[in-house]
Computed example of a mutant assay.
Amino acid sequence: MASPNQKVENMFATTRTICAGRFLIDIPASATVVYGDLWGPYEIERYPNEAANIEAYLSRYAEKLKEDRSFASKQLLGPHSMLGKVVKGAAPGQRLFFGVDRGSSIFYEIYSLMPVGADLFVQIGTSSHKDYASVVEILNSTARRIEPLRENGVPTYSGFCIDGALIKDDIESDVEKVQMGVRLQEFPDVHFSIEMTRKDFRVESDAIEPRLEEARRRAFAMGWGSWYSRIKTLRKGDRTLGPWKGFEVLVHIPSRKEIGESHDFNFVALGIPKNPQVPTIDMKLDTGVHDNRPGAVKPSVTDEEALDIWDRITKSIRLRPVASSK
């Protein structure tokens, strides 16, 4: 008998496995992946096929500094300032550029430019003049440990996957964060996203339950009680997913004024502080999305199809196995 969700069944007939953070996720082979914030431990940006253009990037940062130099003060303007200097890093081809942090006139914004295969990765750290050497060492450590991630390959050794690269384990990172979105060719308005962050402390405000209560309170306070009461709950409650014990709420939101109907699925687990194998996780699925606005177009999936897509992706998430170091 044919599946009632035959289009979803066909979409998942061929899948591919991607590495995100320390985990693996199975997605349709036709899907595309987009990345948001990546931290390990500082913010990292990828520029595909730009490794050969590192000098051009250094020139851009130098031009930017001409505009930002007026923000600098104290030691950054002294005789021993590193402002505007370019130095070699610890890894082959790596360069470090010292700019100024606009948010603090006495802090450097240090750019670490790292050629990784054909790509250029730029990691950005901030530091006072007194402590910049320690920040440079962290940036150098990342540059020593980052290497290309094969497009269809899954690494077998321990590390943290980001967009197009793996940061191999060496020392414990202060922060590991990956934001990733999955876009479905067959259902362009359906957006799945996941964020995983290793944190040192449990942040109770990240939990989904208080946010739900605040949303309900605000809806009634603003006179939207009738609309709120028509939200259709498809599933809600505690859910154990792999190493996580979290909370899930899956709803179908009715249209309101200029905003059309949509699905809003969310799973949040606070994880275990300082444990990279159980980070805080926040997963979402939205429908009716156009220009990143849920409810902008009519959803292309039914409730049943949305649930099917959600379960297939979320149930596939598992810790990436690594070879023993012995």
Rank of each mutant, 00 (worst) to 15 (best):
E147H: 14
R69S: 09
K64C: 00
L38T: 10
V116A: 01
L319I: 11
G237P: 12
K66S: 09
I208Q: 11
L212A: 06
K236N: 07
K236Y: 01
D200R: 15
L38Q: 12
D286T: 01
G78Q: 04
H263D: 06
E213P: 11
G36E: 05
R230I: 06
V268W: 01
M11Y: 03
D286F: 15
H290R: 15
G153H: 10
D174E: 14
Q185H: 06
A219M: 14
L83T: 08
P148S: 02
A215I: 13
I25N: 00
P276Y: 04
T142V: 15
K168T: 06
L96F: 07
P273D: 02
A51G: 01
A29E: 13
E261D: 10
G288N: 04
A296F: 00
A29T: 04
T280C: 13
Q94W: 02
P276V: 07
F220D: 10
R150K: 15
K257H: 13
S59R: 12
S300N: 07
L76K: 07
I253N: 15
T240H: 09
S104V: 11
I317S: 05
C19L: 03
Y35N: 03
G99W: 05
L307D: 07
I146F: 02
Y42L: 06
T15I: 12
N275R: 03
T197A: 09
I167T: 07
Q6E: 13
F201G: 04
M82T: 05
I110K: 03
T240C: 11
H191L: 11
P254A: 07
L58Y: 05
K315M: 09
E195R: 01
G288S: 06
Q75T: 12
Y111R: 13
W39A: 10
G21V: 04
S325V: 13
K326L: 15
A31L: 05
K232E: 02
T287H: 01
V34W: 06
E67V: 09
R198T: 14
T280S: 15
R312A: 02
G40H: 08
E258D: 13
G125S: 07
S173W: 12
L184C: 05
S205F: 09
L76V: 08
L285I: 03
S104Y: 13
I167N: 03
V135T: 03
E137F: 11
F98H: 04
P276Q: 06
P79T: 10
L76N: 04
D206W: 13
M11S: 03
P41S: 10
V8T: 08
T240E: 14
S134M: 13
E261V: 09
S205D: 05
P254I: 00
K74Q: 13
L113Y: 00
V34R: 14
K245E: 15
H290I: 04
E151G: 02
G223V: 01
R312Q: 02
S81F: 06
L241E: 09
F107H: 04
I44Y: 06
E137Y: 13
S141G: 14
S105T: 03
H252Q: 15
V86E: 12
R217G: 10
R60S: 13
E304T: 12
I208K: 01
S128P: 00
A215D: 08
E45A: 02
A2K: 11
A91Y: 02
S226M: 11
L241C: 06
S81H: 08
V116L: 00
F247V: 04
K315S: 08
R202D: 07
K74P: 01
C161Q: 03
I124P: 00
F201V: 15
